[in-house]
Design a protein around this nucleic acid. Structure first.
Lengths: 141, 141
DNA sequence: TTACCTGCAAACTCTTTGCACCGCA
DNA sequence: TGCGGTGCAAAGAGTTTGCAGGTAA
C-alpha cells in the first residue's frame, strides 16, 4: 500500500542520503527518516512526534520541525498544505502527482498524473512552474 | 479587473443579502461586506482589517473573523488556503474556478474552468465532490 | 424585549527562535 | 576541536473563545 519509492531503507542508506544532502546523520535524524521517508504516508508533525515516542527515540518537537524542514529543503520530502486543513502534511513521494482527500476519513491518497490529466489553455503570458491539484470527495468502499 | 459578480453592491442590497442568509445586518457587517464582497480580490483577514481602519469603520479583529466565517458558512464567500501560504484568503467569486498564484508578486488570479480543463480517469470508486487547482508560476508582463 | 452581535482580552494551536549543551566528523 | 544539531522554554503568528455590554428586529 505504500506507493513511495523508498520502501524499507536501511539505517546505512539513510545515513548516506543525509550526508549526500549535506546533513549530518544524527541518531534523531536517522530515526525520524526511517518513519518519514519509508513507513509514513502523509504524516503531520504530530504523527511524527507520536511515532518517535512510541519507538523510544529521544527527540524534541523543535528537532522534529528542524529535521522535517531540512529534509524538505534538501528535496527528500515535500510539505503540503491543503484547503480546510490547518496543519502541514509531509509527503515522501517526490514524483509529480496529485492528491485525493477523502472528506469522510481524512485519508490522503496519491493520484498519478496519468489518472487526472489537465489541459492548459492559458495564454502564453502565464509561465507555469507547478500545478497543485487536490481532489476532494469520498472513496466508496 | 474585478471578475466577481457583485461589483458595486449598495448598502441596501447587502442588507438584503445578509437577511436572506439569516444574518442580522449590523453596521459592521454591512461595512465589511462592501469591501469583501465587492471591492476586494482575495483579501486576507489583515487586508480586511486594514481597509476597515482606513474607512473609519469601528470594528474589532474578532468581529472581522466572525463576519468572514459567517459569510463563508452562508456561501457568500469562500475561504482558501494555498500551499506555502500561512494565512487564509477569502474569495468572493463563488463560481467554480481555479487559481493562478504569481510566485513573484504574490498575486492571485482567478482562472475560469474553461481555460484549464481536467480529464478525470479515476475509477468509479472515487466519488468527487470538488477539485481545487492551484497553478503556480509567473505572469509575464 | 430578546436573541444575536460586538469588543476586549485571554486562550489556543501550530511553528519558529534563542541559547546553552552535546555529539558527529 | 569546531561546527552544527539538540532540547528546552519562550516567543510569534494566526485564529478562536468567554463574557459583559450593546444593538437589530
Amino acid at each position: 500500500m505504500n506507493n513511495n519509492q523508498n520502501t524499507c531503507l536501511s539505517a546505512e542508506q539513510i545515513t548516506h542520503m543525509l550526508k549526500d544532502a549535506g546533513l549530518s546523520a544524527t541518531s534523531q535524524r536517522v530515526g525520524l527518516c526511517k518513519y518519514v521517508l519509508c513507513e509514513a504516508r502523509h504524516p503531520t508533525v504530530e504523527d511524527v512526534r507520536n511515532w518517535s515516542e512510541t519507538q523510544g527515540i529521544k527527540t524534541s518537537l523543535a528537532t522534529v520541525y528542524n529535521t522535517l524542514n531540512a529534509l524538505c529543503k534538501a528535496g527528500m520530502l515535500k510539505d503540503l498544505r491543503f484547503p480546510h486543513m490547518d496543519k502541514v502534511i509531509y509527503d515522501n513521494n517526490i514524483e509529480p502527482h496529485h492528491h485525493f482527500l477523502d472528506e469522510e476519513t481524512g485519508n490522503i491518497i496519491d493520484i498519478p498524473e496519468i489518472d487526472f490529466e489537465y489541459n492548459n489553455k492559458l495564454s502564453h503570458e502565464y509561465e507555469i512552474h507547478d500545478v497543485d491539484i487536490i481532489i476532494r470527495g469520498r472513496l466508496k468502499n
